[in-house]
Amino acid sequence: MMDPAEVEFIAEKQMVEIVPNFNFDRVYLISGEIGPFRAGLPVKVPIWMAINLRQRQKCRILVPDWMDVEKLEQAKEDESASRYFTKMPSEHYMAEAQLILSACGEDVPRADEIRTALKDLWDMRMSKLRSSVDTFIKTGGTHARLDHLTLMEMNSVRPLLPHALDQLHRLSTVRFVFSPLVNSSSCFDMHISILYYCFWC
């Protein structure tokens, strides 16, 4: 299981477009090169860098296309119409939106409506996930196919689901598992005991 803060940390690697207000050469990082930065020209950077620059008033963040009320309302409709999980615009839609909106929410028009739409979408998907998990356990399935589930969503059923499956597996194979007290044969055991005490006599 991961802490949600760790999932968010992974999401911070996603790229986002910014418009810097400064000039700077290309930066070489372990994860790849970024820049060059030209004032007024859009450039792609990881979210963690965008937030840091924005906090120091060095750039404007261009909100990703999908963070838009109409598009999210459409996604909500698709989600409720489908039995399965629909594909989200980003593998980290919740974390990305939360990071970007909390860094520059004031620059985004209708930010509150975006937040609400996202929360609705999230809740819809979570209740879908809950009932799939329940059905999965009840029917005793051994595998399940869950496409388009994002990392934060998968993490929400950890460690409860894997632990429950462990226990279920243990209960159904119980007669063969480790049991510190099962003796293979008492006659055999008796000889062991006797040897044991004779040895110490």
Binding site: P4, A5, Q98, N155, P159
Partner: peptide, 16 residues
């Protein structure tokens, strides 16, 4: 289950 859920709820309301 509850402790991981609480961590998630806290993240949803306050972020990382």
């Amino acid at each position: 289950g509850r402790s991981s859920w609480e961590a998630l709820e806290a993240w949803l309301s306050q972020g990382g």
